[in-house]
Nucleic acid binder design. Structure first.
Length: 509
DNA sequence: AAATACTCCAACCGCTCCCGG
DNA sequence: CCCGGGAGCGGTTGGAGTATT
């Protein structure tokens, strides 16, 4: 159970006295030392060598090596270090060990001095103004702790870093934005140019995917219309809305503030009913993310199963959903990131997922818009948990089998027949389970729709392109410089869909 | 009172940058 | 220009303190 209470613990003093010696266990590493320095008068276990005190230490010394102490510093060590720096000044940290006899790595000496011993260090908690400066700086520049420390006299980079991570976790736990509104608004309106410049600079340093959390607009799905004519035959036009507890599990405090750090904008052909024979070219390849051509996030497809008439409901924007209550739209198409922890994913979906790489510190939650009333959706006609369990089961399969290319739409643009669906292994996700297919039409549909080529085919037919985007060219490229592959000519009749980062995660292979 | 959960933060680690030879 | 060592930076670890059960 995650506690939602605020930390009760008072900030500990960083004094070099009193807190010393009660942190890490000590360990030892061995580094070479020049023999002529072996005066050996330090105390065992405190980083001070005593002549002939310990066998292994003596053995090391005889072999030209001395055991260096790790772990918490003692008062004696601090005194030696301070004394040495008073005499010789800062710098030449490896020389400290040679000249003072302190059995500490030069790195460790520098860190101890910089973070605890040097004069002028503040030992108090961060003030509100300091906190604001840190947040603002981090929003603009990212994890540049040393630059922040230079900006805040008496503060160390380590201290600022610890403060940031502690606050970051706390905000996430509480489902609150990482950055205060005044900061985000400040740099997204009149300060947008500076922010844009900063972000542009950072983009060369960060993983490309991390830029996707910037300015990804919500898709306006108000014109979405469920296309039963695009479904495979024999499935009927019943309500495919699943009613599993999967939806219930997403009814948490994060439902409206899920971070969407890594998302991708993909494109597909715009299909009208008169042009339904065309098979959409789904998922531009960026080279770096070939998994975009793999089957979609089952979460996403589960979400899409809510499509009905003029409504489409997003799962995480629909807390407390139940099978007996109508669902309202339109909904934001935002999807969760799940990059933060396996726990989060597992809790949410009940599915084991390997942890993602650590991009956390620059994550920015995206605020989902509130749910607005629209047309009611008829009650479910008996969907079950089987859909979700089926999806997750199949998504856990290892990759094998033929490409989805073996499954093509019919010449008239309708979905392939059931026999083809049953016999096809989509990019290794084995859907060849006839019993389930024949018993549960929803699963049949899901499996068919699960492939990006298919789901986008019936989804994108009516999605409205976000207004801020010029689907005919340059504006989009300007706003999303990462997608240089966009071609003006190709942009005609194309729509843009935001996919969750789960699609990008290699585990979805 | 004991066990457990959670947070804090000092210190470590690996990597990169810089500079002098 | 290359190489090696020193310094610095950012991310991570894990022990200790504190709150909660």
């Amino acid at each position: 159970m995650i506690s939602t209470s605020t930390p009760k613990r008072k900030k500990l003093s960083l004094s070099s006295e009193g807190d010393v010696g009660k942190r890490r266990k000590r360990s030892r590493s061995v580094l070479p030392v020049e023999e002529e320095e072996g005066e050996g008068t330090l105390e065992k276990g405190s980083g001070l060598l005593l002549s002939g005190e310990e066998d292994d230490q003596r053995d090391n010394a005889e072999g030209g090596e001395v055991a260096l102490t790790k772990g918490p510093w003692t008062k004696e060590e601090d005194a030696i270090l301070v004394d040495h720096i008073k005499k010789y000044g800062e710098g030449n940290w490896n020389g400290v060990q040679k000249n003072s006899g302190l059995a500490r790595d030069g790195k460790s000496c520098r860190l101890r001095w910089a973070n605890h011993l040097r004069p002028g260090l503040k030992k108090s908690a961060f003030t509100a103004e300091e906190e604001r400066l840190i947040l603002e700086f981090h929003f603009r520049k990212g994890s540049k702790w040393s630059q922040m420390a230079a900006m805040l006299p008496g503060r160390t980079d380590n201290e600022i870093k610890n403060f940031w991570y502690a606050r970051y976790r706390k905000q996430q736990r509480l489902g609150l934005p990482i950055y205060p509104n005044e900061i985000t608004s400040k740099y997204s309106s009149n300060g947008s140019q500076e922010n844009a410049d900063t972000l542009a600079n950072e983009s060369s340093q960060r993983d490309e995917t991390e830029n996707f959390n910037l300015d990804i607009p919500d898709l306006d799905l108000k014109n979405f219309r469920f296309r039963p004519d695009m479904l495979p035959p024999n499935l009927g036009t019943q309500d495919y809305r699943p009613t599993s507890d999967l939806l219930g599990r997403c009814s948490d405090s994060y439902h409206n503030t899920l971070p969407m750090r890594r998302a991708a904008v993909v494109r597909c052909r715009y299909l009208t009913s008169s042009n339904s024979a065309a098979v959409p070219e789904v998922f531009d390849q960026y080279g770096k993310y070939p998994m975009l051509s793999t089957p979609c996030d089952p979460i996403l497809n589960t979400c899409l199963l809510h499509g009905y008439d003029n409504c489409i409901t997003g799962f995480h924007a629909a807390p407390n959903i139940s099978s007996s209550e109508p669902i309202y739209g339109p909904m934001s198409f935002e999807l969760p990131s799940f990059q933060n922890s396996q726990t989060q994913w597992s809790t949410w979906s009940g599915m084991h997922m390997p942890p993602l790489s650590s991009f956390e510190p620059v994550d920015t939650p995206v605020q989902a818009p509130p749910i607005e009333p629209c047309l009611p959706v008829p009650a479910s006609l008996g969907c079950s948990h089987l859909i979700d369990s089926s999806v997750y089961h199949n998504s856990n399969q290892n990759l094998k089998g033929p490409s989805i290319d073996s499954l093509q739409a019919n010449a008239d643009g309708t979905a392939p027949n059931e026999a083809d669906i049953i016999s096809t292994q989509w990019n290794g996700l084995d859907y060849d389970q006839p019993a389930a297919l024949t018993t549960h039409p929803q699963i049949n549909f899901l499996r068919w729709a699960c492939h990006p080529r298919n789901f986008l085919r019936w989804l994108c037919s009516e999605i409205e392109t976000p207004q801020d985007y010029d689907i005919n060219g340059g504006a989009l490229n300007d706003q999303l410089p990462a997608y240089r592959s966009f071609d003006k000519q190709d942009n005609l009749n194309q729509k843009y869909v935001v996919l969750p980062d789960a699609v990008l995660d290699s585990s979805w292979h």
